[in-house]
Nucleic acid binder design. Structure first.
Lengths: 354, 354
DNA sequence: TTTAGCACTCAGGGACAATGAGTGCTAAAC
DNA sequence: GTTTAGCACTCATTGTCCCTGAGTGCTAAA
């Protein structure tokens, strides 16, 4: 059954007032506020209906009304107006995105922090675990006679390096040999294919190289493993305490410690994020995770390139300014997608310092 | 004036009881507890003395005693027994340290998290900003015709890389040329010496290379800059809420938001950390930062190599189990020092999977 | 269908007394 | 001189009672 226009108007007023004040809304306040020219008594009747239909709740008999999850859902689906970001805000976001070193994890971490700061809610950023990644290339760079850097590159152009120090001399030709060996034997392989046997064979072919092959390949495996499991960055957990629903330390603590366990968050959110379109809002009990049953989560997904995806989002009380948060998140997500897709800089304009 | 043996014994009992229970300690409880065969009345007299001398405080007339910062100080300096870690604990720490990729910042971040988990207090790990770092070497690795990886290595064997995508073709010889150019012109230079002029000159020598030199050098500058400023990693801020002194949400929030501003923490702690020996304990008002006046900080420093140093520490209420925390911290710090000093693995024992 | 009026409910807050842990002091005992 | 028992005193904490006021639901008139 469709709600009457007036009921919708009232529901919207309740939600928006409650979002602002965190106080139950009474009929009298609504009568003045909402652009309706009816008395508080009329509103009371409507409120009673809305409560019966499950859109509103009453903390106790003599209190005003508070939106139920179902009420928020209706608000988000139909009543909410899209929020535009101010120029100031978009500028701030753009600046922040372009600032730092463009290393995959750094950028994503950074984006999470930014979102948290922007919205005043705890935020997280995660990369979907990519499946079946392979190694694309090895490079070994001699540093001095007893150490070298291994650079490993995988699909999605992820590059990682590590410095190896050895208790023995190492010559440039030896390193060359190792490099070609690594590249012929291990490039294009997935994580499972990097078996101990394969490593032993290669090791043997390389002659007495102090088990260097194993070392470097183990490192490569770590890298692949890390990427396949996805990464989770959380930021701004302390913002929880900003909001009156978490004045109760016990509650706050529960949520916080949930947020700081990376694994759980990733799992809880992987599913809803996968299908959805651009942004997604999960209200209270719509969350799968028990710990999030009375919080809301807003998600936006972005493209990393090569088919990899990521998600950024915020967590907060169900009383959340969904319109604003969703707008900000989706703007940041778009920014990230562009950032990862884009070449370094236009060739025509070499940089000038000022 | 030196305290009598008995007074010390009583003070110690008060501190240790209070550390455990967070409740003011009364004379009766002490009479039973401390290995003293005197009545509660005697203890009361002693308590009165200790209070007068400033080692104890009374929240209100009809309450027990609580150690003052000065009392904690005496306890830490003279009364505290060194705590030994259990085998289990040392194993846990060692495992964790050796687990992950050995990238400078990853390890340090990881160490911070571990400490926080180990002690149940918020922890931080920071690297002292190294002065006058120089670039030791550049390498450029071609990925495909329109992208390459730049690997920059600095003093202290820090290695960073970044992927550059270009909207134009690039050949292996071109890249070779660039590499030698970068290495001849910029190696051994400090951050200040990487001036725009120098970049322009080099750019010119390279011919029309799309401003690639600037790009790569800018990246190198970012790296140097990052290292010189030092980095701060905080972890486990949510542990604050575990402790009864932060049941007051306002207090908890203040401390938390202080902890999440990286800069301030680094500054507040840089000074005391610089001189000190191995571990250092700052009790309540001994902290310089206003926000930390009623918290304590325990610090331990470690060597990164090449003269660079770092600090790990925890923050908590003045009622903190100093003995345990100090022991754990110093163990982890030692572990880190060893880790950074050590070669990759003994040459005789190539790794085996199991 | 809307509105005015009225009785009813109930959380929040202030006043007040009871409780009890812990103190300081004094005077006796060692 | 030190230790101890005894006792009056202090004061945070807890629970009870009551009042207040915001907000409701219902009824009857407009």
């Amino acid at each position: 059954m469709e709600l009457s226009e007036r009921k919708k108007k009232i529901l919207r007023a309740v939600v928006e007032s409650y979002i602002q004040t965190a106080e139950p809304v009474g009929s009298k306040a609504l009568a003045q506020m909402a652009g309706l020219k009816v008395s508080s008594a009329t509103i009371r009747n409507e409120l009673a209906d809305l409560t019966e239909l499950g859109y509103l709740e009453q903390p106790h008999t003599s209190a005003g009304r508070v939106p139920s999850p179902q009420g928020y859902r209706l608000y988000v689906n139909e009543l909410m107006e899209e929020q535009r970001l101010s120029l100031e805000e978009t500028r701030q976001i753009n600046d922040a995105l372009h600032l730092k070193m463009r290393e995959l994890d750094k950028v994503i971490d950074q984006a999470g922090r930014m979102v948290s700061q922007l919205t005043n809610y705890p935020a997280f950023a995660l990369t979907e675990g990519a499946r079946r990644l392979t190694i694309r290339r090895f490079d070994l760079i001699l540093v001095d006679s007893a150490s070298f850097i291994a650079v490993v590159m995988t699909d999605s152009s992820v590059v990682k390096n590590k410095l190896f120090r050895l208790p023995a001399e190492l010559s440039e030709p030896q390193l060359q040999l190792l490099t070609t060996l690594l590249n012929t034997a291990f490039v294009g392989k997935t994580l499972d294919q990097l078996t101990p046997e394969l490593m032993r064979v290669a090791e043997h072919a390389a002659g007495s190289s102090y088990g260097l092959i194993s070392l470097v390949v183990s490192f490569a495996m770590e890298v692949l493993d890390g990427l396949e499991n996805g990464a989770v960055y959380t930021a701004g957990a302390s913002h929880i305490l900003d909001h009156p629903e978490y004045q109760d330390v016990g509650k706050a603590q529960k949520l916080m410690s949930y947020l700081s366990e990376d694994r759980s968050l990733a799992q809880a959110l992987a599913l809803p994020a996968l299908d959805g379109d651009d942004t997604k809002i999960l209200i209270g009990p719509e969350n799968v995770a028990e710990e999030l049953k009375d919080t809301s989560v807003v998600l936006a997904s972005y493209d990393i390139g090569d088919g990899m995806k990521g998600v950024i989002g915020v967590v907060g009380p169900t009383r959340m300014d969904y319109a604003k948060v969703a707008a900000k998140l989706s703007y940041v997500a778009d920014g990230l997608s562009k950032l990862f897709g884009q070449p370094e800089l236009p060739p025509s304009a070499p940089e000038k310092e000022e």
